[in-house]
Design a protein around this nucleic acid. Structure first.
Length: 971
RNA sequence: AGGACUAUAGCUCAGUUGGUUAGAGCGCUACCUUGACAUGGUAGAGGUCGGCAGUUCGAAUCUGCCUAGUCCUACCA
């Protein structure tokens, strides 16, 4: 083996082997266990969040696979309608071509081309992360099968009365020319103005204080062209006499009523609100209550129309209202028009004042432009009926969120859920299965033929709806559409409901909630009981940069997980972060920041270290600040494992690589190493040392801890338990304790065999525990180690996960080792504080202690001598005078390092004083507790007893050290 | 405006149903190239657990208030 761990030397080939051998596919044996990958955007690339997500899922899948479950982890991507179309349009735009130049069909060909070209990025990344997904079942939301499922779901929902079409206000993106759902709108705090306009009263009416106008305020002056009313609060005394009167809308000369509505906040501004039902969601509701017309003044680019489009609240055309608009603004962009209209008000003396105003501006999460509420025909999913069972499924525990707190977030959203606008004015996506006849009647069906037959349309001309469905509509079907629905496939029967969904909290509404609704609606058991999509939703935090900022392309702080695996130079990283930017003006800032954060670029850490880091950061928090230092630590951990394995192999193989006797040959003499190693044929007895029994016992406890932590989705605790066991117990102590045995020329064959067997078996088991966290290094080492441990198998992937055995827990061995460690640490401490070279063997005396302690010393001298580098040890007789010595206490035992020639008087006094201070602090604390009658009376007996024991021990230790102190001080 | 979450060592984070001398990694200090490993070893230093009250014999842990930060939902024209 190489002297240091070289991740890139082992990773790729193992993944290829695993994949080629088909280890990732379900075995067909055992209880099914299924995870569906949250589909990333097919044209994107994985970021740290995906890396994190994959580490968790693969950990769960590999663990369950090793536990014998029939595991399916299914990969795939979604088609990301808006994002993908934007990318392709941008590419075409660079060549001066628009999608309209190409036409729908040719444009879609281009998109498919791009998908084919870029789709490999993500699958390549998933492979490099070591994810054991079943590639044979990879799915894509635009696949034929999934498209079939989408169509089927749409038609059925329509038949069930849960999909409808209507003219409503939607969030319109004037750049992308499509409706988007309210979830895709980001409300950002921005600075703006509040313009106060005078609206003259009609018919000579006046306000209570004699004015001939009222004042309304607006943040969007251009919408005044579509005003249909002015509203005041019904109980507002100032305007009582005006309710039912009219104002004459400036610029337009439209006569609009003054209505009373308690939506109005009397305290805000003048208490008068202009009502524009076609351009504001609240005004739309007011308009509904007062029968106001919807006066649309914007076109699809959010430029001003030459003539308004007027509708009644039910969406039918309104012919009563005069649609005339002032010609001056026709065709002007909304912000241009805004300026012009404000200027005109000012010219007319109707601009009362302009205030600065902080407001929330709705922006499209993709385009970044200001979203306009706009009146269009759209398709909606009626959500109320679907939400109800979805709420129940979580309430009654059929679906559990981990951590539980996210259930509140889910409930809050679900209980106030709005109908879901699912149509998008795009070309890339699932086309809506609806057809229109010449009269504009709409028919929904699986295809045109079905529609004609079902509605007896003969050969009347029909045309299909031009729109496509929201990508999240197809994602909502993900758990079952990917298993073959609407066909009742074997896979669907076996793996649905799936077991766990692993995701970030940011898409609970977008995806998780909608999946729950759709799945409960469509998937039923044989007895008609709705199926949940998954039993657990494990919600993890969002990976942030070291400053705690969210990683985003525009901030230029994104990291590609592969760059942490393989490493990247500073120049390449800068290049990567500043390429293809939407806002190139930020490049300089990003470059500077990148150079500051990664002055040396990023080193190569390997997949295993990255994955272990992700797992160790997976606690219950919401934010995960990614810490490079931590990853470096876990890379070192891999190196530690690597070198531990080297040590084990060195001691369990001969120089030619043939195995030594590690007890792997069982009870017969087959495979005897009599030829190579002088083993007596047939001899199989094994003697386990104290250290052997101890490490075996600790292994059981580790197995318990990991098991428990994984059951609770505490990947951080699981990885920590593993880390501690391997580094702090196996490497720091056990390997050191094995040396005195292996290097003892007097050691019996049974002793050697026992220690070798323990060395390999414990490490082999530890590798299996670690495998779900660090698949590559564990496989690499396991291949060499398994035969020595007497294990058969082609891969560690399919080996059983170790299970704790209660009978192997050895409390006595643990106590003995604790004592031994106490002695060793005590001596080392004296060495350290007294500046005695670790290379110098010293003599140590023992005194007091329990009879058991003396026996411990007797039995384990070899360990002590080696680990503390002692020349000699000796237990003083009761009546024997102790020489002047530095003292350490281990329980009852006093460990003495004679001072003669070695120890400086003042240094030892200082050291003792430090110990005494510590003890007296502790004594004071405990005395305080025990001196409190309330404590003694009310606290449980066991607690009081524990405190008493603690006090006694501390006092005794204190006395002994004090005596020692006095003795030395008297010199 | 409503709600949620977070606050523990210089940094990144653990701390299980209230009873510990409050832990880990990184960083820091001193010493050590001893035959697995300097991507290492040994020994250390470092915290009045954001603040204030309360419940309790006992609070990092439970309750309330305050402060700071993050986020979500809704929204004032």
């Amino acid at each position: 083996m190489e002297k240091t761990y070289q991740p890139h030397a082992i990773e790729r080939s193992w993944y290829e082997t695993w994949e080629k051998k088909g280890y990732f596919a379900p075995t067909g044996q055992g209880d099914p266990y299924c995870i569906m990958i949250p589909p990333p955007n097919v044209t994107g690339s994985l970021h740290m969040g995906h890396g994190f997500n994959n580490a968790i899922m693969d950990c769960l899948i590999r663990y369950q696979r090793m536990k014998g479950r029939n595991t399916l982890w299914q990969p795939g991507c979604d088609h990301a309608g808006i994002a993908t179309q934007m990318v392709v349009e941008r590419q075409l735009g660079a060549q001066g071509v628009s999608r309209h130049d190409l036409g729908r069909e040719k444009f879609l060909d281009k998109v498919w081309e791009w998908k084919e070209a870029s789709g490999g990025t993500i699958t390549g990344q998933i492979r490099r992360l070591g994810s054991s997904v079943d590639w044979s079942r990879e799915r894509f939301t635009m696949d034929e099968g999934l498209s079939e499922a989408v169509k089927e779901a749409f038609v059925r929902l329509h038949e069930d009365g849960l999909i409808y079409r209507g003219k409503r206000l939607v969030n319109w993106d004037p750049k992308l020319h499509t409706a988007i759902s309210d979830l895709e709108v980001e409300n950002l705090d921005e600075k703006g103005n509040l313009w106060h306009f005078r609206y003259p009263l009609a018919d000579g009416a006046t306000t209570a204080d004699g004015k001939d106008h009222i004042v309304v305020a607006t943040t969007r002056p251009e919408t005044m062209l579509g005003d249909a009313a002015v509203a005041v609060h019904p109980e507002d005394e100032r305007y009582q006499n005006l309710i039912g009167q009219f104002v004459l809308l400036p610029l337009v000369n439209r006569r609009i009523p003054i209505v009373a509505d308690d939506y109005v906040d009397r305290e805000f501004g003048t208490g008068c609100v202009k009502i524009t039902p076609a351009h504001d969601f609240n005004d739309y509701e007011v308009g509904k209550r007062h029968g106001l017309p919807l006066i649309n003044v914007l076109d699809r680019d959010a430029a001003i129309l030459a003539s308004a489009q007027v509708f009644n609240i039910d969406g039918t055309p309104n012919h009563e209202q005069d649609p005339t608009l002032p010609g001056a603004y026709a065709g002007q962009d909304r912000f241009e028009a805004r300026k012009a209209i404000v200027a005109e008000f000012e010219r007319l003396g109707l601009l009362e004042k302009v205030d600065d105003h902080a407001l929330k501006v709705p922006r499209g999460d993709r385009s970044g432009v200001v979203i306009e509420p706009w009146l269009t025909d759209q398709w909606y999913v009626s959500t109320k009926a679907l939400a109800e069972p979805a709420i129940k499924a979580v309430e009654n525990g059929e679906i559990q969120f981990v951590p539980k707190q996210y259930e509140n977030m889910y409930f809050a959203w679900m209980r106030d859920i709005q109908d879901w606008c699912i149509s998008r004015q795009l070309w890339w996506g699932h086309r809506i299965p609806a057809w229109y006849d010449a009269q504009g009647n709409v028919y929904v069906g699986r295809d045109e033929a079905e529609v004609r037959a079902k509605y007896s349309l003969g050969d009347a001309p029909l045309h299909q709806d031009e729109d496509v469905l929201d990508t999240w509509f197809s994602s909502a079907l993900w758990t079952f559409s990917t298993l073959g629905w609407p066909q009742n496939t074997d896979a669907l029967k076996a793996f649905h409901s799936t077991d766990v969904l692993v995701t970030g909290f940011d898409i609970i509404f977008f995806w998780v909630a909608r999946m729950i609704m759709m799945t409960l609606h469509f998937m039923k058991d044989e007895d008609g009981k709705p199926q949940v999509p998954f039993k657990y939703v494990y919600v993890h935090g969002l990976v942030r940069d070291s400053q705690g900022h969210k990683m985003s392309k525009s901030k230029g702080n994104v990291l590609d997980p592969l760059d942490l695996i393989d490493g990247i130079t500073l120049e390449d990283l800068v290049q990567k972060r500043t390429a293809n930017m939407m806002q190139p003006q930020l490049a300089a800032k990003i470059e500077k920041q990148t150079r500051k954060e990664f002055p040396e670029g990023i080193a190569s850490y390997g997949t295993d270290a990255l994955r272990f880091t992700f797992c160790s950061l997976a606690s219950t928090g919401r934010d995960i600040k990614f810490d490079m230092g931590r990853m470096e630590g876990y890379r070192n951990f891999c190196n530690k494992i690597w070198n531990a394995a080297r040590y084990v192999l060195m001691n369990t193989e001969h120089e030619d690589g043939s195995p030594r006797d590690c007890g792997q040959f069982g009870g017969d003499a087959q495979g005897s190493e009599s030829v190579a190693g002088g083993r007596t044929p047939g001899a199989t007895e094994v003697t386990l040392s104290l250290a052997d029994r101890w490490i075996i016992s600790r292994l059981q406890r580790t197995e318990e801890q990991v098991e428990k932590a994984l059951a609770e989705f505490r990947f951080d605790l699981a990885s920590q338990a593993l880390f501690e066991f391997i580094w702090n117990e196996y490497c720091d102590w056990y390997l050191e304790l094995s040396k005195p045995v292996l290097w003892d020329e007097q050691a019996s064959e049974a002793q050697l065999r026992g220690t070798r067997r323990t060395l390999v078996r414990v490490l082999e088991a530890a590798l299996r525990i670690a495998h779900p966290f660090m698949p590559y290094i564990t496989e690499e080492i396991w291949q060499r180690l398994a035969p020595l441990a007497g294990r058969q198998g082609e891969t560690i992937m399919l080996q059983p996960f170790p299970e704790a055995k209660a009978e192997k827990i050895d409390a006595a061995a643990e106590a003995d080792i604790e004592w031994l460690k106490g002695v060793i640490v005590g001596v080392r401490n004296i060495r350290g504080e007294m500046a005695i070279s670790p290379a110098k063997p010293i003599d140590v005396l023992f005194r007091k202690g329990t009879p058991g302690d003396a026996e411990r010393l007797q039995n384990n001298q070899q360990f002590l001598k080696k680990l503390a580098n002692l020349a000699s040890v000796r237990w003083l007789a009761d009546d024997e005078e102790a020489p002047l010595a530095a003292t350490a206490l281990v329980g009852e035992t006093e460990v003495l390092v004679p001072m003669a020639g070695l120890i400086d008087k003042d240094a030892e006094l200082a050291r003792l004083q430090k110990e005494l201070d510590k003890l007296s602090k502790s004594i004071k604390q405990v005395e305080g507790k025990l001196g409190n009658a309330n404590f003694v009376d009310k606290a449980p007996e066991a607690v009081v007893a524990k405190e008493r024991a603690k006090l006694e021990e501390a006092r005794s230790a204190c006395e002994r050290l004090q005596a020692q102190y006095d003795k030395i001080a008297a010199l």
